[in-house]
Design a protein around this nucleic acid. Structure first.
Length: 200
DNA sequence: CGACCGATTTGCT
DNA sequence: GCAAATCGGTCGT
């Protein structure tokens, strides 16, 4: 039976091994809980698509810290996205939590996402943060306090895990480091990275 | 200090 | 299908 002590051990592994093991895990904040159905791996400074690609900065410092902590960043002036820090301390690997299914606190999640269908409540990285009310104040939080992560008792079998290119990146999007539970309706729709607008 | 741009979502055409 | 919304991180002058 996986206790909280095991979490950091599991997450300290190689990010490509850890990412699929997060599928089916339950992330809880307050009364809202989300079962993860889609994640994306980022491999620290070795990965051109990672926030850590250009070394440690004020924003990404948490990525360089110990595993089993939350890295939450703010983007596009209006959205938050949450990652779970993986790998040994100093490796700066992380797994972006792209989508999930709300399995508890449905009413609270619906209030936070007015107009959204239940399926869409946490379908997308920024939507997931909105449903769980995660923001920059949770950056660096360990996963045993206000926010918890519970690994599945039995991992989602690899026959039910699909992989594909990462979403929304300009660089290295082609690496098949996105993992999702095959057939899950809460998985976000694939969108290739937007082409750069030509400058006049 | 100024300019550029992003691991997105939403709404309108 | 496409562009707007909106701001902090990062880099160049």
């Amino acid at each position: 039976m996986p206790g909280s002590a095991d979490l950091a051990v599991v997450l300290s592994g190689l990010v490509l091994d850890v990412a699929p093991r997060l599928l089916g895990a339950v992330l809880r904040h307050g009364d809202v809980a989300v079962r993860l159905t889609e994640v994306e791996a980022y491999d620290g400074p070795n990965d051109p698509g990672s926030h850590a690609a250009r070394g440690r900065t004020g924003r990404n410092a948490v990525m360089f810290g110990p595993p089993a902590h939350l890295y939450v960043y703010y983007i596009y002036g209006m959205h938050h996205c949450a990652n779970v820090v993986c790998g040994a301390e100093g490796t700066a690997a992380a797994v972006l939590l792209r989508a999930g299914e709300v399995v508890a606190g449905l009413d609270t999640a619906r209030r936070r996402r007015p107009g959204a269908s239940d399926r869409d409540l946490a379908r997308g990285p920024a939507r997931l943060c909105r449903a769980l009310a995660l923001d920059r104040t949770h950056d660096g939080a360990d996963l045993t306090g206000a926010v918890t992560l519970l690994l599945p008792e039995t991992p989602v079998p690899c026959t039910l895990v699909s992989t594909g290119p990462r979403v929304g990146l300009r660089l290295a999007a082609v690496r098949p480091w996105r993992f999702w539970v095959t057939g899950e309706p809460t998985v976000s729709t694939y969108r290739p990275a937007a082409p750069r607008r030509l400058r006049a």
